[in-house]
Amino acid sequence: MKQRARIRLIVIYISAAIVLLGTVGPFLWLVSSSFQYERQLLNRPPQWLPNPIVLDSYREIFEGAVLGEASGVPYQSRIFLRSFANSFFVAGSVAAIAVLTGAYAAYPLARLDFRGRSTLLFGILASRLIPALSLAIPIVLVAKQIGMSDKIISLVFINLSFILPYVIWLLQSYFKSIPMELEDAGRIDGCSRLQVVHKIILPLSLPGLTSAGILAFLLTWGEFLFALLLSESPASYTSTVVVSLFATDVDVSFVSIITAGVISVIPPIAFALIFQRFIISGLLSGSLKG
């Protein structure tokens, strides 16, 4: 019996090692590559760990952002940090507004009794079934007509509507898990509905609100299609767009491309690992990426 347990553990750890390698291996190789000289990247066999640790490509991106054209670095490197800031602005705004408006929309769905409740919930969720590609065409057309193209605020607005259904779904199921007695106690003490929401529901839902906000941030950070179609200049490029400009350009050095990739995933990966509990609970209560 003891030997069986040992074999079981060995099998488990071999499998776990394979999964671990497959999960983080490709990304670690990207990180390792970003710290090497361009000529080292061309070595055969490849050099696994950077030796020495080279920060040139990182310096290029900072110098490019500060000095502009005078730095002599490629165009993509010069505009990268600005796009990084744009991504923060868009993803942060979307997260904040989505949680705020989503919470108010989720409360009646979770707690109030009114005609059309299930229709409203179904309608909100069904809006996600329409493929983004088919919506992209009219959105781009209208945005150009009304002068909202190439504006970062348009990206906030568009991303918001794709995130909101998830946030509402997640929050209404969270609100439902709060004991009704707490709300009734508040009502007996003379709270209005709005006070109940502000003083009882929202404070008790802090974990749910946090996971909704983090998911909204991460999903928006990775959005590409609308960022590509609605931006025409560095003023509104997000980091995914600049990464695609890097990746599809054959004239830029490998190490610059790779470094841009690494920097642009630092926020989402850091967030994902720091807030893993919130994210996993959020994902499992019905929210999906895509």
């Binding site: 990207l30 990775g222 995914t240 695609s244 990739g261 642009s264 995933v265 967030f271 994902a272």
Partner: peptide
């Protein structure tokens, strides 16, 4: 191991494409 699964999940699809282009 379960937490590290979130590493690929958090990578935007465009950066993922760049990563595989390099690989």
């Amino acid at each position: 191991l379960r937490a590290l699964l979130l590493v690929p999940w958090a990578i935007p699809s465009v950066v993922n494409a760049l990563l595989w282009k390099w690989l």
